[in-house]
Design a protein around this nucleic acid. Structure first.
Lengths: 354, 354
DNA sequence: CTGAAAGCGCTAACAA
DNA sequence: TTGTTAGCGCTTTCAG
């Protein structure tokens, strides 16, 4: 029995149906599909017409199987609703789209189990690049984990891209797109110090988080360069949340009366700080200066508008896919994007002591 | 020449390599992979071990080609950074993941060209469901477009899901997951009316947008039920942006002095309204009440915290994939989720004149 | 319970 | 320029 046509069988038409209808061979159809091979104009239009008449749609899976690349980039985050993931995602999606790639979205909710599962899934999908965003820890365990992911993905032809996290080691087959936490913190702390502040609280110290390590380093270096001693008791541990900012501020207010400025670990923390300050009747920036880090959209909507460190989230996402896709060219494998402070309304010189 | 092993050739190991190594046939390996077929425990563990030793990973494309379903759901939005897409996305991703599906993310930037391209792409991918969010227009052109998408996707075995938009017509093969715009607006307007407001500005009227139509309908019905005439000149057209809210408020303030409350078309608009009011020295809620719609995270961070209409974004996303995946069961094809008002700090009775 | 055989829909040499 | 011939890696009857 001759191969029966799908079109007639009520199933989706295949390249074979198109070929039959156009009176050409299957590869010819494949050629007009790919476009990168000479095909006689007449044949070409016959084929095109047949495709249209049958409402033919190529099967991406068959295509991926048969040869060509997979054309898929995966984007892995903790939680899509995180304040800045959206902007990184936009960068990733834009760049992926402009390079003709589709974008897979996966979330892990910080669960190592799921993280592992996601990486395996991406191996199955043969994703060209797997971009992991945020949440880096500074311990051996984490490093090892990433090393494993990187090599596992590498073995199946994918590239791991660490976005917004530091490098897990030079010998790990991964691309890393980071941003200058230390420089940003340094600039921001200097801004405060130059304004005359001497007692600056650092709220939301996340022990073991690489983000924290880097920011604190800049914070301290700025103090050193300004000849101001860092009061370690002013570095308050906490999560990167509004609630933490709120709570820590209340505590700070209750315990100290010499602090004139607060450096919030993130903008989210700063939002909580501002709220607590408002509740306590402390005016910003007259009585207390406040700064954040990240420059999330919320920052400019706060009252007063928050002075913060801008992180190029969108560019981070774009670079991540760009580097992963054009590897081996003159591009570097590990880059660090710059950050800069954005001066808005929450910083003023400290009030003269009464 | 016998079929050469990929493993030896330095390529990725295939099911054939695993079979060879385990000393079984290819279908047997396939069976332990699928798990839905009896395999002798001994054989099973031999295969499992071979897979581990070879670091074997199934090829999702080959699998999709050969039979089984694609296990992919697509999520199409205008712009990932939109204020509430993130929460719908989270719902979509969560539900997709819990149903063992992968999630494709695509953006259109409101460009009809790209929208069309995305739909074609999803047809190629054989996505099980294509969830389109936001941005519905109330014109014939739009309806037709959606009808086309729905039937095109239907023909290639995918299901179109319209999320947060009204139905494009009963005969269109699409699933729609909507939320109660009219009810929410009705409740909110009633809240204002009950507090004593009689002159309420509606800022951000988007002509032709289904969202606007529905909200305005509720707004007017509430007025009617309270025996208050709607002043049409108080319904100000504008986009759903902060800038629009800001600009429209300035205009409103300049032109009218009888308005005691503002109903912002969206929370974003409300953010602009609040800003303009603050700049003009108008106190909220003492001098002017303000309400929004959507209940985006920003709403509770504004000062004062915004009273608004809560839309169950996350649930919207979850239902979208749930309905699309379990179609035909007792589930309905078109559902409307409820909305409710969230009372915060921006509404008070109107100030007594004079 | 396991293997042999036959594709899924497409691309990629290789000829013609 | 076009057709022929082989697979890509997996699942699925159908026998055993």
């Amino acid at each position: 029995m001759p191969k029966k046509s799908n079109a007639e069988a009520g199933k989706r038409p295949t390249i074979r149906d198109v070929a039959a209808r156009a009176g050409v061979s299957v590869p010819t159809v494949s050629r007009v599909l790919a476009g990168n091979y000479p095909v006689a104009p007449a044949t070409r239009s016959k084929v095109l017409r047949a495709m249209r008449e049958l409402d033919y749609v190529v099967n991406a899976h068959a295509r991926a199987l048969a040869g060509a690349t997979t054309k898929t980039v995966a984007f892995v985050v903790d939680d899509v609703t995180g304040p800045f993931y959206a902007h990184i995602a936009r960068g990733v999606e834009q760049q992926a789209a402009s390079e003709g790639r589709l974008c897979l979205l996966c979330t892990t909710h910080g669960d190592p189990e799921r993280e592992l599962a996601v990486v395996e899934l991406m191996r199955e999908q043969r994703a060209e690049a797997v971009i992991v965003v945020g949440g880096g820890w500074d311990d051996e365990h984490y490093q090892e984990r990433m090393r494993y992911f990187a090599t596992a993905l590498d073995r199946s032809g994918s590239r791991l891209v660490l976005c917004g996290r530091p490098s897990p080691g030079d010998d790990v087959p991964a691309t890393v797109v980071h941003y200058d936490n230390e420089g940003g913190a340094y600039a921001m702390a200097s801004h405060l110090l130059s304004a005359g502040h001497r007692r600056i609280g650092y709220l939301g110290f996340g022990a073991g988080l690489t983000t924290t390590d880097e920011r604190i380093r800049g914070f301290k270096r700025a103090h050193a360069d300004h000849g101001v001693a860092v009061d370690e008791s002013l570095i308050l541990p906490g999560t990167f949340s509004k609630a933490a900012g709120h709570e820590l501020t209340r505590r700070l207010l209750a315990e100290r009366d010499d602090v004139t400025a607060v450096f919030a670990a993130t903008d989210m923390v700063a939002a909580g700080v501002l709220k607590a300050l408002r509740e306590a009747g402390v005016r910003v920036p007259e009585d207390m200066s406040v700064v954040g880090f990240d420059d999330i959209p919320l920052a400019s909507d706060l009252t007063p508008a928050l002075t913060t460190v801008h992180v190029p989230h969108e560019q981070l996402g774009r670079e991540a896919v760009r580097l992963a896709l054009h590897r081996g060219l003159e591009l570097d494998d590990r880059i660090v994007l710059g950050t800069h402070i954005v001066v808005r309304e929450t910083v003023a010189p400290p009030r003269r002591r009464g």
